[in-house]
Design a binder for these strands. Structure first.
Length: 258
DNA sequence: AAACATTGCAACCGCTCTAAT
DNA sequence: CATTAGAGCGGTTGCAATGTT
């Protein structure tokens, strides 16, 4: 078909974002909301590709982002979700409030992967490495026992989209909740992890809120916790971003945060 | 202290998906 | 139904920070 590039490559800036660019983007999004990303750079006065703007916003500037390393409960959740969903980082991220797919993906590749290998577990298949070696070349495709089978949902890929329409309880009723109860018996990874007395963490992380609730109730228990990002801006220089306009966003008294 | 190796993360690239026409 | 364009996703890369020799 020959698609147009997402942006005119000429004159488009690449590489790390400057504070000034961040400020422009934040101001624009907070004033106008997220609209057509292609138009954002032009309207916001940025020499960036719209795609780059979207990425910067969703991965770094979004107000609801949590910052810092994943805690144990979050990490545990990522491991189990990965065992069930594979490298569907956005789906995994959807279960972790304030975390981005990119962040989780990075954390997986840099921390969790190594940890699992160290524990003798294949991070791809979540099977014991020695078992795989003895079995010869069991391809990664046998992974999550084909997650379709695991979820036992009728339509293979439609599920992915529909999944989010379910309340977390509904969504994980057959697989995730049972995981807490008994499935760990069969899962070498979970056996290994549970052996390290992480059940309390699991309990915390697997109490999914209802669809009406925000996931903030699970990991970031308070609104303020989930908005720890704001504190980061304080370090960065709150005024730098001209965030006064955010006072109009919600019930929070932004000036108090300053 | 310098050189080199490793790590971790932000950002980019290219592809797929989806909605609009 | 075919085509197009925009958005989103996952894999990969580049590079600064950190550790090691």
């Amino acid at each position: 078909m020959g698609r147009q590039p997402c942006c005119d490559k000429l004159g488009v800036k690449k590489g790390p974002w400057t504070a000034e660019e961040d400020k422009k983007l934040i101001n624009f999004i907070l004033t106008n909301g997220q609209c057509c990303w292609r138009a954002v750079p032009k309207l916001a006065g940025l020499l960036r590709c719209g795609k780059s703007c979207r990425l910067r916003w969703t991965n770094y500037l979004r107000p609801d982002l949590k910052r810092g390393l994943l805690n144990d409960a979050e990490e545990q959740l990522v491991i189990d979700l990965h065992a069930r969903l594979g490298n569907r980082w956005s789906k995994i991220a959807a279960r972790l409030p304030g975390r981005t797919d990119n962040e989780i993906k990075n954390h997986w590749n840099t921390h969790i992967k190594k940890k699992l290998i160290k524990m003798g577990i294949d991070p791809v298949t979540h099977e014991p490495l020695h078992k795989q070696a003895s079995q010869g070349s069991s391809p990664p495709t046998n992974l999550p026992q084909s997650e379709d089978q695991q979820f036992e949902l009728p339509e293979s890929d439609d599920r992915i989209g529909k999944e989010e329409n379910l309340s977390p309880q509904e969504n994980c009723s057959s697989s995730e909740l049972s995981f807490v109860d008994n499935s760990s018996n069969d899962d070498p990874l979970m056996n290994c992890l549970l052996g390290e007395n992480v059940s309390s963490l699991i309990d915390a992380s697997w109490k999914f809120p209802s669809a009406e609730d925000d996931y903030n109730n699970v990991v970031g228990s308070t609104w303020e916790e989930s908005c720890a990002w704001l504190l980061d801006y304080q370090e960065f220089g709150f005024e730098e971003f001209g965030l006064g306009c955010m006072e109009s966003m919600g019930p929070m008294d932004w000036s108090d945060k300053h």
